[in-house]
Design a protein around this nucleic acid. Structure first.
Lengths: 343, 343
DNA sequence: CATGCTTCTGTGAGCGTTCACAGTAGAGAA
DNA sequence: TTCTCTACTGTGAACGCTCACAGAAGCATG
């Protein structure tokens, strides 16, 4: 009574063991493992049975050594820590990508590059070929990390439009401009005319496009664009609060506010409350993202929904295509207005 | 003028190239790469120069193939998605572990196991030996994932005390009981006597210990323990809100409230506001964690600080030790009372 | 001078795959 | 029959590294 099969970390079965068990050669087993073309049904069957019986799982290192692929991808976040800690959007994206990759049996390596040093270390790691490709999330464009990786020939898909217009970086983004237009139209439809905006960072296309949508709709509606009603932030809660305070000071008659992220909108709500303004009675507030921050807010935020689930699956699809040799591509996804208590 | 050195994905240098360049053998290069014992200073120097010159980086797959190690670890989160989306503690932990591992040049594989299916898939992946060890974060104890992995001989460190008392699982935890004691003592010191509690889930040691600390201090102080003042939640915002509503209904004279997580405390604040209670005048509120939720809350939460930075570094230290062959161990870290506006 | 010890170095083997290639068997065409 | 073509199978050679081992060189000890 001394046996114990589990736990004892015995040598795992190899492709050789499977081949012997199935009465075929290594090559045939390998072919079954990789798609099963040019394999007779009989052999196919025998190999599968042998795999089940032996409990064989492929040794990814051996495979990678010869294929040159690592069959893993990196998820690179070039944001300061605090942003990662406070913004649930990152989690949604991270979770979505992890799951989409899991369907292809590809593990996700998490790479957090908040500082310059980390960015350098991680860039080196990536260009050394330790991952097949990179999913990049970076809302500010200060770093040239995307361009660097592309120049090094690393397959890459960015979340959100990249900066340079000529940049050949793959990306997936929501239709920022259109979303902003919808929100501002909605605020106009409530009869508001003194509509303020706290935009995203203006060194990113996302920030620029949402602001452009705002201006466009106001112009179409014949409402004067008042620079005192325009502030910008960096998507963080604190910057939304600060931006709103600034607007209140410069334009006390503001009766609506479009905030370019839900998190900033939370800050805006806090600033408005402190200033004694009721939402939505005195000031109607619209956010952007439809993250959990929108429903947690009090009052719950009217917002523009970004289809994060589709964004992550598209990012993964584009990356795998690129790893497979296809050219970079861009995908723009539609947004949707979600009405709640704040307007 | 047709050359272009970057981008052209040429065959990367191998240990062979470095050896030739340095005028030594593969073995010597390998020794330099792995600690440099039994290598003459001369050779050491020559090899390092050659590495710099050739831009050599080790091929991890080739190394792993022979060592049997993958030199990577998994970060396993067995929580439903929504919890991951709303609770910033996970991000703090994730970031801390990623960085602590980076110092050892070990990549982190993210594994999200919100559902049973995912749990099964990931367990298989792990037991197949694709990672050297696992950092496990799971606040509810329903799943036997920790035990399963341990039985399979996978090095494992859990965040938070595991369930079974006889369980030989490594873990790192804050001193839950002591933290709870500090908070309740603090509330008593404010002159409050009708102190309610929204505990964590009672099927986890963390939840149980914090509740025990609460009861202990009340008993010592000669304050009657009133079951109507005791509710429990699952650390989520919504459960904190619901728990607080329950308490207000059962014990309207409650003048203080200890909530076992900051997120639940946010919910508690919302419930209290809706009930027209002022914080801290009518009800003093204390949280637990000192997460970003505590400072974001309005009013800012008095809370018990968990040293997340140390928790993650200790988790990594323990895991690497275990991978290195050491026995599982437990680390309990001290907490600290942080006073803010809510008390 | 032999012996042992320590420090250092090179060499062959092998880790578990995939890939290219050669080869076999069977079907159909000439 | 012979040839060609297709469908399938087995084999050796990598892939880039580490590890065990053998051996060399230097030095002290008997």
């Amino acid at each position: 009574m001394t046996m114990s099969n589990t736990g004892g970390r015995r040598r795992p079965p190899t492709i050789h063991d499977v081949a012997r068990e199935a009465g075929v050669s290594r090559g045939t087993v390998s072919r079954v493992l990789n798609g099963g073309h040019y394999v007779s049904p009989t052999a196919q069957e025998a190999v599968n049975a042998a795999i089940r019986k032996t409990g064989y799982v492929v040794n990814r290192h051996a495979r990678s050594l010869i294929t040159g692929r690592s069959d893993s991808v990196g998820f690179l976040l070039t944001e300061p820590q605090e942003r990662f800690f406070e913004d649930p959007n990152f989690n949604v994206l991270l979770s979505g990508c992890t799951q989409a990759l899991a369907a292809h049996d590809i593990p996700l390596l998490l790479m957090l590059a908040g500082t310059k040093d980390e960015r350098r270390r991680i860039t080196r790691y990536i260009t050394a070929g330790h991952v097949d490709g990179v999913l990049l999330v970076s809302s500010h464009s200060g770093d040239r990390v995307a361009e660097e990786l592309r120049e090094a020939g690393v397959p890459l898909v960015q979340c959100g439009k990249p900066m340079g217009p000529g940049s050949k970086v793959s990306y997936v983004a929501a239709d920022d401009r259109d979303g902003a237009r919808d929100m501002v139209r909605h605020l106009l439809s409530l009869g508001r005319r003194r509509i303020g905006v706290v935009s995203g960072p203006l060194d990113t296309p996302g920030g620029v496009d949402r602001l452009a949508g705002y201006k466009e709709v106001l112009s179409e509606a014949g409402v004067e664009i008042d620079e005192r009603l325009i502030a910008s932030g960096d998507y963080s809660r604190a910057s939304g609060e600060a931006g709103t305070e600034l607007l209140l000071e410069r334009a006390p008659d503001m009766d609506a506010l479009f905030v370019a992220s839900d998190l900033m909108a939370q800050g805006a709500l806090a600033a408005l409350r402190r200033a004694g303004r009721r939402v939505p009675e005195d000031v109607a507030v619209g956010g952007f993202d439809d993250s959990s921050a929108a429903t947690e807010a009090d009052p719950a935020l009217t917002t523009i929904r970004q289809p994060y689930d589709r964004i992550s699956t598209e990012m993964v699809r584009l990356l795998l295509a690129q790893i497979g040799g296809e050219d970079p591509a861009a995908v723009i996804l539609p947004t949707e207005l979600v009405k709640r208590e704040s307007t």
